Computed example of a mutant assay.
Amino acid sequence: MFDLLAAAGAGPSAAPVWTNLIWIFGMIAIFWFLIIRPQMKRQKEHQDRVAGLKKGDQVVTQGGLVGKVVKVDDTYAELELAPNVKVKAVKHTIADLIEPGGKPAND
């Protein structure tokens, strides 16, 4: 008789462990598709653009300098910022390429 009373007062049993794992894997999938995957895609596109640099391209560095590519090697790109003003930049610090034919911001 005491066994029946003890069993009745024990309350509900805990959920199975696999239900908790479903939530954890679901959160990992959400982070993968919303954060990690798009960032990897943007990084791959940037690497492709930097690898395809050629003489005459107009670029923007991560520091905000705008220049024209004069010379490119494996690691560095030489940029002309103004007439007779050249700087050497590490290729991976180039943020973006400016499309030819684009209008300047102040025109």
Score class of each variant (00 low, 15 high):
54 K>F: 08
23 W>L: 09
36 I>F: 10
35 I>N: 09
10 A>Y: 02
47 Q>R: 15
64 G>T: 05
94 I>G: 03
21 L>F: 06
53 L>F: 09
92 H>I: 06
8 A>W: 01
105 A>R: 10
25 F>L: 12
5 L>F: 13
27 M>D: 09
99 E>N: 09
90 V>Y: 02
68 K>R: 11
76 Y>V: 14
97 L>Q: 07
2 F>S: 15
30 I>F: 08
72 V>F: 01
52 G>S: 14
1 M>G: 14
41 K>A: 13
18 W>E: 05
2 F>W: 13
106 N>W: 15
55 K>Q: 11
79 L>A: 01
62 Q>A: 00
65 L>W: 04
90 V>T: 06
65 L>G: 03
18 W>C: 00
96 D>W: 11
23 W>T: 10
20 N>M: 06
63 G>F: 06
27 M>C: 11
100 P>G: 04
29 A>L: 13
24 I>K: 02
67 G>W: 04
51 A>S: 05
73 D>Q: 03
25 F>R: 03
40 M>L: 13
95 A>I: 03
106 N>R: 13
30 I>C: 07
65 L>R: 03
66 V>Y: 02
41 K>S: 03
36 I>S: 06
78 E>F: 07
52 G>W: 03
56 G>P: 02
107 D>H: 11
2 F>R: 15
43 Q>L: 15
62 Q>Y: 05
69 V>K: 04
82 A>C: 00
106 N>I: 14
73 D>E: 02
87 V>P: 04
24 I>F: 06
86 K>T: 10
38 P>N: 02
20 N>W: 10
87 V>L: 11
48 D>T: 14
45 E>M: 13
93 T>N: 08
100 P>K: 15
99 E>V: 12
14 A>I: 08
98 I>W: 01
89 A>R: 10
85 V>W: 07
46 H>S: 13
42 R>V: 13
76 Y>I: 12
77 A>F: 03
64 G>Q: 02
26 G>D: 03
99 E>I: 14
38 P>K: 07
19 T>W: 05
44 K>W: 10
18 W>P: 00
33 F>H: 08
46 H>M: 15
65 L>A: 09
34 L>W: 09
32 W>P: 03
101 G>Y: 01
30 I>D: 02
11 G>C: 02
67 G>D: 09
68 K>G: 00
9 G>S: 12
92 H>K: 10
23 W>H: 08
56 G>M: 00
25 F>S: 08
79 L>R: 06
15 A>F: 03
22 I>L: 11
89 A>P: 00
52 G>P: 06
103 K>A: 12
42 R>G: 02
54 K>A: 09
100 P>R: 15
73 D>C: 07
72 V>G: 05
25 F>G: 08
68 K>D: 07
29 A>Q: 07
75 T>F: 05
7 A>T: 13
96 D>R: 15
97 L>V: 13
26 G>L: 02
64 G>Y: 00
102 G>P: 07
8 A>L: 14
17 V>W: 03
76 Y>L: 12
20 N>T: 08
3 D>V: 12
13 S>N: 04
8 A>D: 10
1 M>I: 14
38 P>V: 07
57 D>E: 05
62 Q>N: 10
90 V>R: 05
63 G>W: 00
58 Q>S: 01
50 V>N: 02
91 K>Y: 03
93 T>W: 05
61 T>K: 01
